[in-house]
Computed example of a mutant assay.
Amino acid sequence: MNDEDQQRQWSEVQLNDPELIIYLAGIDDLVRLNDEAKRHLWGAKWSSTEALRRQVEGGAMCVICPVFRNGGSVDEPESFRCFVWFIEKPEGRGRVSLLDVGTATLAGLRRASSPDRLTRIVRALMDGFELARID
């Protein structure tokens, strides 16, 4: 079997998984992540940088959490399908959507590791984020 015939298996990130990490990203990070998803033709992404900038509040911090390890050819970079929580403009409402992010790229983002920051993230999520469609 050739390398191009080998497939990486899709899997869910479990609660006890060491890769279950909460990351923080600004708008410029999201643009970079979205550009990577477009380059690799991954499915979960914004249609354009302009659409991303129209939907996501620029000054707010976004929260990213891997949910699934994407399957696919072993020749392709490893990636995660992630929840992305963000503030939508102009309404200022909390929203959540999906974005495919390369494993190496994800590891380069800032981690939300302090108890205070994690508590604030949980509170924001409990206060109600709505599922958003990425345009």
Rank of each mutant, 00 (worst) to 15 (best):
D3Y: 09
R93L: 10
T49R: 15
S114Q: 10
R81H: 04
V84T: 13
D17H: 12
Q9P: 10
F68Q: 09
E50I: 06
A51Q: 11
L131N: 08
T103V: 06
L33T: 05
G102Y: 01
R110E: 11
V67S: 09
R111K: 11
V56L: 03
S73L: 06
A107S: 08
Q9E: 15
G71W: 00
D100R: 05
C82Q: 11
H40T: 14
R53T: 01
G102M: 06
L33F: 11
L118E: 08
R117V: 09
I21D: 08
Q7F: 05
E19W: 03
M126P: 00
L33Y: 12
C62M: 11
E78K: 12
E130I: 07
L125R: 15
G102T: 11
D3Q: 14
R93G: 11
L33A: 08
A51I: 06
D29M: 00
N34L: 04
D127L: 12
H40P: 03
R110L: 14
F86M: 13
D5L: 10
R39N: 10
G59M: 02
Q7K: 15
Q7R: 09
E57N: 12
F83N: 12
E91K: 03
I22R: 10
I27S: 07
W42C: 12
V74H: 06
L24H: 00
D28V: 13
M61W: 04
E130A: 12
G94H: 03
S73M: 02
L24V: 01
L41Y: 03
V56P: 04
G108H: 01
E76H: 07
W42F: 15
R54D: 13
L33R: 10
D28R: 11
L20F: 03
N70D: 03
N16E: 06
E78F: 05
A60Y: 11
R123W: 01
A60C: 07
R95S: 06
V74S: 07
R133H: 08
G58Q: 08
G26A: 12
L131C: 04
P77F: 11
P66A: 04
I64M: 09
W46P: 02
G58S: 14
E57I: 04
E50K: 09
S47L: 13
N2L: 05
C82F: 11
W42K: 15
R117C: 10
D135W: 10
M126Q: 08
P77W: 11
I64A: 13
R53S: 01
C82M: 09
V84D: 07
R8H: 09
L24E: 09
G94M: 13
L118Q: 15
S97G: 15
